[in-house]
Amino acid sequence: MSETWTYILVIAGVILAALTIAAGNIFIERRLLSLWQDRLGPNRVGPFGILQVVADVVKIFTKEDWVPRFADRGIFILSPTIVMITTMIVFAIIPLSPGIVVADLNIGLLFFFGFSSLGAYSLVLAGWSSNNKYALLGAMRGASQMLSYEVFMGLSLMGVVMMTGSFSMVDIVEAQKNTWFIVPQFVGFLIFLIAGLAESHRIPFDIPESESELVAGFHSEYSGMKFGMFFVGEYLGITLISALTATLFLGGWNGPAFLPPIAWLLIKVFGMIAFIILLRAALPRPRYDQLLGFGWKILLPLSLLNLLITGAIILST
């Protein structure tokens, strides 16, 4: 019985941690952006403005949750939940420390792919159900963007899979005991990072919601809690990509013994989050066709080449 309880505890812990980190991201991002942009950022609510997140959440919860009459009500409500669910569920496969993982699936990576591809629906359906021109445009952009970058994401990870010989995340982490995969799979790492950003439609790839051209893209019509779900979902996505990068390329919980494995993982995840926030501060948004052209014309051949060379090296050794 205690095994089951431990299991449930781990699940609850993962969910809580993911949500907390995602919420904390909001604060961290604002502070870091301010830092890099030579300003202060939120610093009034609580120490260092740390309670700003709470204030935001209260604001979101109490706002009028309005569904437009011209919208397709059911799908309009369904869409934000999809992004939450599909992102949250993938955390189940990330090994936190030796022996602690929600689900050690033998198709772990494929599980991630499956749900990340399902994540596209939230965006697409939100845009469609809003019955709004800008929302629809954003949705279509998002659909093509996510559909395309899923391909490179999958291909970029195949090098890791080949070197491990398994889809299981636990196996992958254990295979990095000596060398992190970022060293032999640096190209794969780069592609995965770019594709991951595109999948979570973060700046600079926030084309489905680009405010300056499409008002707010697919979530133009959303407000209140449903907007909050999209909002949190995006930060969950960042967290997920960071966690996956840490797990797949940076050795996961591997690290010197003076810190517990979970601490190493958290350090790596936060490092990745900080890096992604830095990217937001540093890079402009590309044009829509540039994005797709970059994907199909550069990333795809590059990832295939990476795969080919990796395969050749594995075969020769």
Binding site: S117, M140, S144
Partner: peptide, 19 residues
């Protein structure tokens, strides 16, 4: 594969076209 390809990719194509 069913999730990735069927539910994730092929059906997105359908949604895309419908949209």
């Amino acid at each position: 594969l069913e999730v990735i390809v069927y539910a994730g990719a092929i059906m997105v194509l359908f949604v895309f076209v419908i949209m």
